[in-house]
Design a protein around this nucleic acid. Structure first.
Length: 885
DNA sequence: GGAAGACCCTAT
DNA sequence: TAAGATAGGGTCTTCC
């Protein structure tokens, strides 16, 4: 058998550990990659040893040997070789000798049982709850982008041209199994290498392949009527339609997945609809044959062998849902376009139609509705071709959405800056991203890796950020300043880390003492904390990416600019997740004092500045956690609205200059080592009705925009006439036209009272949870809600379901309030988008009341209150002017 | 009529 | 491998 070496660069999509039945002293890691030039590669990596680290809690850094018996450990049949002396490591604030123990297998029955036994014997066990694939990236300091060289085991039709195609496949399959693999993986190229030949590579944009699909199903019987799929290979799209028996449809989709070999699997609502439905229907179609089921839903990037399909229970080849959360499809990444749209856009409503409309408002063809989804059986019987067109369109839109939102490059950038696989960046949790960086740094710095804290029940909350009271009314000429990366900066400057926390009471060598609880941290000379070190590195790398971005932009290098912008943004996201993880109760490197000290310093810094400003006679208008709004002392009569010319314009310009100057000056004055205050924006006017976290501002520098925070305008559970009216009122108020704002409120309330407003402007939409009850085959709500039927959104969800429309836990459901006199109030679900028909009849009184209340909060800050507004709505003719105070 | 509680959504 | 945090506003139902 000839042997061919191949060298390449690739991005790791995901990886898995595979136990090696023939030789339990070796391990094999599967790395599913997409190469820089677009080939899919399964890289089989040998040479990694699963291990556990132990230390004796009764020893200290002077001990050479533990009190517990190392011999006993050596003699355990699960242990491979002698314990390896590691010297002293830091654990729980204590230096003490540690040993590494190689374990014969990472399989549960060896590894976890050994871990348990050692722990029971009295050892402190560390480094023992991390997947081997993550260990691989950590121990060899790899990120998702790697270069490697290794032996080609098998080459398929889409392999690089230079590599001869494999002819003796069955022989090769056997060879692959002998080195720990599963056989002939459905990829372009199968390779084999040792860990030592893997190296970190510079990030590049990987040409991923994406598969999008959509099922149309019977409302009556749940079976699949037809399906469509699109493969996107570097922008080139291949569309497929599937009709026929349910089995044929699913087999067709599965063949396409296995032949086209996509990295990402998308669709609209696949997590909660299309994937679970495929699983259900494949089981239903062939309950007694796993291999039949694999032909219908064996989407994992694994060979369809007996072993991978499974004998008694489903094997790895099947997509699987983990704890009702994310789906796992070995070697591929499920990426639901619904969830991406929801996360990045926060749309008011979440139907595919609504989201498409939001993204492409002027393209009718993208959202033309012609099929009534609630009558799918009838539609399919009467006009199958139209149904198929509709189905195809719904597979293309998710791809367009992911493109538009840049979802995939964002995941890849996050993977790159957190040095994880793309799968971990995509579907993992924030603590996994942070683990990836912290654990590898700890390993290099003699710090042991504690296991995740598994205590249940809520611990006492720590105090959070400081929020300043706001006075109702308008203020003109406000400079907004904020701290640059406040929490990370505090962690860096005060050396806050579990490795620097002083746990005992003696007071020597202390440099940093938190202002309230007097928690103490080592000076930087004694030891630089792991996390501060890491955060500083991230801050530097963000600056580097930002610089590279500007340089690329100047050079007209669009791709380079895009890549570096994604990377700098990913660093920002990652840095911002640190505080939360370290303030959580379960994270492995957390101590309850860490989170509390961070916010203590934050509150101390900001309140200190506020009181200094006030002492100097400045009016601090507002402040939230890391921001301060300061009023410039400018003559009261300077117009807030930019005049078109004349002396007023000069006065306006000079007020603006003064605000800019103040902003710069204060930023300089209050910036100190480790707490950089930046001048962020200048406002010509600021308004709040007097509630924290609710304000608006007319931004005039560095760009011009209307800034709105907290108000109904920002909320997805507001209705559009309220949001629209309030926005317009804010515009007027910030220009100084209070009367105009009040008149607007009055006229809109009158219109609503008289029923002159489109019902679609009155839709309220809120998210609704629910869980699927397998027994009854129904969605149930009483496990989640104390009194579900009194909640309008639950009743709206039930109405949707009863009309044959899809429901997904967590989805937003729209409704109209039809009777506010009864309790609970009467509502009707908003189904016009999906099934057309007459809209429900709204209760005008309800909407008048809510508008009066919300808008009245605003006008009352203008000395005009809710009751007056409501009276006005009832009888506008009796009051000539309400602006008389 | 008003307090208490359940729940949603947002700011940072 | 279950899992970022707290502060805060607001609506509606239930209960007295």
């Amino acid at each position: 058998m000839y042997s061919l070496e191949w060298r390449d660069e690739a991005c790791i999509i995901s990886g898995d550990y595979r136990d090696w039945p023939n030789d339990s002293k070796k391990t094999a890691i599967e790395l599913w990659c997409r190469s820089k030039s677009g080939h899919s590669i399964l890289l089989l990596v040998n040479g990694l040893k699963p291990y556990i680290e132990i230390s004796d809690p009764m020893t200290n850094s002077d001990s050479k040997y533990p009190n517990l018996s190392l011999d006993e450990v050596t003699n355990d049949s699960r242990v491979l070789g002698e314990p390896i002396e590691l010297g002293n490591k830091l654990y729980n604030g204590q230096e003490r000798p540690h040993w590494r123990i190689n374990v014969i297998s990472r399989d549960y029955k060896y590894y976890n049982s050994l871990q348990k036994k050692l722990s029971t014997d009295g050892w402190d066990v560390t480094s023992s709850d991390i997947f081997l694939i993550h260990k691989l990236l950590m121990d060899f300091d790899l990120g998702p982008h790697i270069s490697f060289s290794g032996e080609v085991l098998w080459a398929g039709n889409r392999a690089p041209e230079e590599i001869p195609r494999t002819t003796n496949s069955s022989e090769v399959a056997e060879k692959i199994r002998q080195i720990g693999g599963a056989g002939l993986y459905p990829v372009d190229l199968i390779m084999h290498c040792d860990v030592s030949s893997l190296a970190r590579a510079d990030p590049f944009p990987t040409p991923f392949v994406t598969f999008s699909y959509d099922l149309e199903t019977s409302v009556k019987h749940n079976n699949i009527l037809c399906a469509a799929a699109v493969i996107d290979r570097n922008g080139e799209r291949l569309i497929r339609e599937y009709r026929g028996s349910e089995r044929e449809i699913m087999e067709g989709l599965t063949r396409l997945v296995r032949e086209e070999d996509p990295d990402f699997i998308t669709g609209y609502n696949i997590d909660n609809f299309d994937l679970p439905r495929m699983l259900d229907r494949s089981e239903e179609n062939s309950p007694n044959s796993l291999s039949d089921q694999a032909a219908m839903f064996g989407w994992g990037r694994l060979p369809a062998t007996r072993n991978e399909i499974g004998v008694k229970s489903p094997g790895k080849i099947f997509p699987k849902r983990q704890n009702n959360r994310v789906w796992r499809i070995p070697g591929r990444i499920p990426l639901d376009a619904w969830w991406q749209a929801r996360q990045t856009l926060s749309p008011q409503r979440e139907s595919l139609k609504y989201v498409s409309n939001l993204l492409w408002p002027n393209q009718d063809d993208k959202q033309k509705l012609d099929i009534d989804a609630s009558q799918m059986d009838m539609e399919w019987a009467n006009r199958p071709d139209e149904v198929m067109d509709y189905c195809v369109r719904d597979t293309i839109l998710p791809l367009d959405i992911l493109d538009k939102l840049k979802s995939i490059p964002r995941k890849e950038a996050l993977a790159s800056v957190s040095s994880t696989t793309v799968e971990t960046a995509s579907t993992g949790t924030t603590s996994q991203w942070i683990d990836s960086l912290v654990v590898r740094l700890a390993d290099r710095n003699g710090v042991a890796i504690p296991i995740t804290n598994r205590t249940t029940g809520r611990r006492e909350q720590i105090a959070g950020g400081y929020v300043h009271e706001v006075e109702p009314g308008t203020k003109n000429w406000v400079a907004v300043l904020d701290f640059k990366s406040m929490y990370p900066s505090i962690m860096i400057s005060n050396n806050i880390c579990s490795t620097t926390l002083i746990r005992d009471s003696h007071k020597d060598s202390t440099h940093f003492i938190s202002p309230v609880t007097e928690t103490r941290y080592l000076s930087k000379e004694d030891r630089i904390g792991l996390v501060p070190l890491l955060l500083q590195g991230l801050m530097d790398s963000r600056d580097k990416y930002k610089k590279a971005y500007s340089q690329a932009q100047e050079a007209g290098d669009e791709d380079g600019a895009f890549l570096n912008d994604q990377l700098q943004y990913a660093v920002k996201i990652l840095m911002n997740s640190f505080y939360g993880v370290f303030a959580s109760s379960f994270y492995r490197f957390t101590h309850e004092k860490l989170g509390a000290s961070i916010t203590e310093w934050a509150r101390y810094n900001i309140t200190e500045i506020i009181s200094n400003l006030e002492k100097d006679g400045y009016d601090v208008v507002y402040s939230d956690t890391d921001s301060i709004f300061v009023c410039t002392r400018t003559e009261e009569n300077t117009p807030a609205k930019k005049p078109s010319g004349g002396p007023e314009l000069l006065a306006w310009e000079s007020a603006k200059d003064e605000t800019l100057k103040l902003g710069e000056q204060l930023a300089n004055q209050f910036t100190k080592e480790g707490a950089e205050l930046e001048f962020e924006t200048a406002l010509s006017a600021f308004f709040s009705h007097g509630a924290k976290k609710r304000y608006v501002g007319r931004v005039i520098w560095p760009r011009e925009e209307l800034l709105i925070r907290g108000y109904e305008v920002r909320r997805t559970d507001s209705f559009s006439i309220l949001s629209k009216t309030m926005t317009e009122m804010f515009e007027l108020i910030l220009e100084g036209d209070e009367e105009g704002a009040i008149n607007l409120a009055k006229s809109v309330i009158t219109d609503v009272h008289q029923g002159k407003v489109e019902t679609s402007d009155l839709i309220v939409s809120r998210s609704c949870k629910g869980s699927w009850d397998k027994k009854s085959g129904k969605w149930v709500f009483d496990k989640i809600y104390a009194n579900p039927d009194s909640l309008p959104y639950v009743r709206a969800a039930k109405e949707r379901i009863s009309r044959g429309l899809q429901f997904t836990p967590g989805m937003k459901v729209g409704y109209i309030i039809t009777n506010s006199k009864s309790s609970p109030m009467g509502i009707k679900a908003w189904l016009v988008d999906e099934i057309g028909g007459e809209p429900p009849k709204p209760d005008p009184q309800y909407y008048v009341n809510r508008l009066a209340k919300s808008l009245g909060r605003i006008t009352s800050a203008l000395k005009f209150d809710e009751a007056q507004l409501k009276d006005y709505a009832k009888n506008p003719s009796t009051q000539k002017s309400l602006f008389d105070f």
